[in-house]
Design a protein around this nucleic acid. Structure first.
Lengths: 152, 152
DNA sequence: ATAATTTATATCGCGCACGATATAAGTGTA
DNA sequence: TACACTTATATCGTGCGCGATATAAATTAT
């Protein structure tokens, strides 16, 4: 970041390359995920469910930093794709349980090769990637903290 | 990034925190940009135009890594907000010239305080921010290169 | 026990973002 | 010169993503 008089120059913004890198990486996923019939946000949902099946919407919301207004339609589409089911929880009727179908579970095998293919395209060294990872989660932590404070 | 057997664990993905940090930072802009009547992508367009007025759509496309299918409606809305004008180029009728209005130009003054406010929220050290910036542009460079190659 | 408050999720409206495609103008080749 | 090809932008359809709000169930307070 150059010491520039004009703070409003595009090249002096930190969030713009963040936004752009995010979009470009998501684009890289598209052809790979197309073979699985998934969009990138759907893929993220699957990652969570492959790791822990039968969760409520809040759990997905917490893990993915996405709200129900985004997740509800997204999960509905995935249900219609027979990847998962959405049922009311027995212990709390306001809550829904999201569970993988067999088809949804089996999709994991096809997804196995994706992370390394993406990583190859990004072409960062392992050290750079780790540093980037840590910084990004630091930013996320900061912004999540701010968000929680704003609720009071 | 942990050495984990399961490459498909959410915590082992690099692009997910990238995606999330991008979304969260964009959210931070919202209340600030709301006062200017702008969305984040519109703000980016303004950054480019404040720096260099009277450009064609391709220029914006190149600078912002956004395509015409995104930019055309976005610019149209900004034209209707009287921030800019879109006119056919005299030298090439396929091309349009996007120029700031007085209202659009003056908005820069109100935007002046935004970058520092955002930077404060992110709360990275200057060194961390610079490192992040460099790495992000490195990723962008890599992925843009791949994209250009895929056109052949 | 009842009312007030909170919580889990859904709905609504709008602005992107993007793959695919269309349209018209400009350029290159035979 | 005419045709083939390329280019600049627009259109189309779909899936998010998000601020704002609604609905119903659960919890808390009185």
């Amino acid at each position: 970041m150059e010491d520039s008089v004009d703070v409003l120059k595009l090249e002096n913004q930190l969030c713009f390359p963040l936004y752009t890198a995010s979009r470009l990486t998501t684009q890289c996923y598209q052809p790979l995920l197309k073979e699985l019939g998934l969009t990138y946000p759907q893929y993220l949902v699957m990652l969570v469910l492959w790791e822990r099946d039968q969760v409520n919407l809040s759990y997905l919301s917490e893990k993915l930093f996405l709200q129900s207004n985004t997740l509800t339609p997204l999960l509905k589409r995935m249900e219609s794709m027979d990847l998962l089911t959405r049922d009311k929880s027995l212990s709390d009727e306001r809550s829904i349980v999201i569970a993988l179908t067999n088809k949804g579970s089996k999709l994991k095998e096809k997804a196995d090769c994706i992370p390394s293919k993406i990583f190859d395209q990004i072409n960062l060294s392992k050290e750079q990637a780790e540093q980037l990872y840590r910084t990004l989660y630091q930013v996320i932590g900061e912004l999540e903290n701010i968000k929680e404070k704003c609720h009071y």
